[in-house]
């Protein structure tokens, strides 16, 4: 009996979580424009999606921002993690708090504060500011993925490399970075995923002329949403799902 309730409870949670998405995906294959009536299976909205210039532009913005932000954040985050790792205990604890804080902060706070910063610094908002914003929120996630790998390492690993004749730069590139490669890749994937599906921060840090997919969808909903966006959202859901599965799989592996 207890087992039965346990399973029911889980089922209810999953239904609440996934039914809306299933409805969305189903509607994206609906031939008609009406949401109330099923008019047969069709890929019509998908073909329209790929011929829609503004959506394709937004897709380009989304992906290119995510790629640039991921690359930059991975480099910065990895180096930051190595720096934090080699700090003494007290400054290390301080840096960890500073790193964790943005993660717990609501996106809207990050978004608004970045917007204010850009206005204050008289930087015109657009593609560049959006990239900067994405790098900003990606870096802590990379740090948090790389740091545990460094801590698992024998504390004399770096010294052992120097001892065998490696210069500090060689030890970094041939020993330290390969040793925490798993954490770096996980961090990069996480950063890429977060960057792809970010709305709030992007919304505040770009201009209406440079839209990524999520801000585009948001502005489209104001005019009454076309089923093209169902197709788009379905595709985004699938891509993010795959990325998240990869990330989760990797973090599960890391814990072994």
């Amino acid at each position: 009996m207890k087992q039965f309730f346990k399973k029911c409870y889980l089922a209810i949670i999953l239904i609440f979580l996934y039914v809306p998405i299933i409805v969305l995906i189903a509607q994206s294959f609906n031939a008609g424009k009406s949401r109330a009536k099923w008019e047969g299976l069709s890929l019509h909205w998908y073909s329209e999606l790929f011929s829609n210039v503004s959506i394709m532009n937004a897709l380009w913005v989304t992906v290119s921002v995510a790629v640039i932000a991921t690359i930059v954040a991975t480099i910065l985050g990895t180096l930051a993690a190595i720096g934090i790792y080699s700090m003494k205990r007290r400054p290390q604890a301080f840096m960890m708090t500073v790193t964790n804080l943005p993660n717990t902060m609501p996106d809207i706070v990050t978004g608004v504060s970045l917007m204010l910063l850009y206005i204050f610094a008289k930087v015109e908002r657009g593609y560049f500011t959006m990239v900067l914003a994405h790098i900003t929120f990606d870096v802590p996630y990379v740090v948090l993925s790389v740091l545990p790998k460094l801590k698992q390492m024998n504390k004399h690993t770096y010294e052992a490399a120097l001892d065998l004749g490696a210069t500090p730069a060689y030890a970094l590139s041939h020993v330290i970075i390969p040793e925490c490669k798993q954490g770096i890749v996980t961090g990069a994937l996480l950063a890429f995923t977060l960057s792809l599906d970010d709305f709030t921060i992007s919304y505040f840090t770009t201009s209406p002329l440079v839209q990524n997919l999520s801000t585009l969808i948001y502005s489209a909903t104001k005019l009454g949403i076309s089923p093209v966006y169902y197709a788009l959202s379905s595709l985004m859901f699938v891509v993010l799902l795959v990325l998240l599965l990869i990330v989760n799989h990797r973090t599960a592996d890391n814990k072994d």
């Binding site: 024998n154 004399h156 690993t157 010294e159 052992a160 001892d163 490696a166 490669k181």
Partner: peptide
């Protein structure tokens, strides 16, 4: 002199081999 210029080598506690 930094370690990589010294003609001594060290065997560390718990070995510090490179697992990769």
């Amino acid at each position: 002199l930094p370690p990589y210029k010294r003609r001594v080598n060290t065997v560390f506690q718990k070995y510090a081999l490179f697992p990769h």
